[in-house]
Computed example of a mutant assay.
Amino acid sequence: MVIQKTSLVNIVIEKIKNYILENKLKPNDKFLTEKELTEQLKVSRTVVREALISLQAVGILKIKPGGGIYIADTKLGTINSILKHHYETHGVKIRELIEIRKIIELGALRLIIEKQVPLDIQQLREINESYLQAITTNGDTKKFDRIFHQSLIKATDNDTFYDFSEIIHQYFALVRIDLTENQESLIKSYKQHNEIVDAIKDNDLLHAQKTMNDHFEPIFTFIKKMEEES
Rank of each mutant, 00 (worst) to 15 (best):
I103G: 07
A51G: 07
T78P: 10
L132S: 06
K102R: 03
E50L: 14
K30P: 00
I79H: 08
L97M: 03
K30C: 09
I127G: 01
T46C: 08
K75A: 06
E88G: 00
E36T: 06
N80P: 03
I135Y: 09
I69P: 03
I94M: 13
G59Q: 04
Y131I: 01
I153Y: 14
T137A: 10
T74H: 01
V12M: 15
I63K: 02
D29C: 07
G107M: 05
S54C: 05
D29L: 08
I71C: 05
I113E: 12
Q56W: 11
I113H: 02
V47L: 14
F31P: 08
I113R: 11
E126D: 15
I113P: 10
R110H: 12
K102G: 05
S130W: 13
E50H: 11
N18A: 12
I11V: 02
K30W: 00
K93F: 13
I20T: 03
S151Q: 10
K84R: 02
Q56E: 09
D140W: 09
D140H: 13
E105S: 02
L32M: 01
Q40T: 14
I53V: 05
I82K: 02
D145C: 02
T46P: 01
I147C: 03
K154R: 08
K142D: 06
L25G: 07
T33N: 02
I121H: 09
I20M: 02
E129M: 13
L21R: 15
G59C: 08
I113A: 01
H86W: 14
H90D: 08
F144M: 08
E126L: 11
T46G: 00
K143Y: 03
I113Y: 05
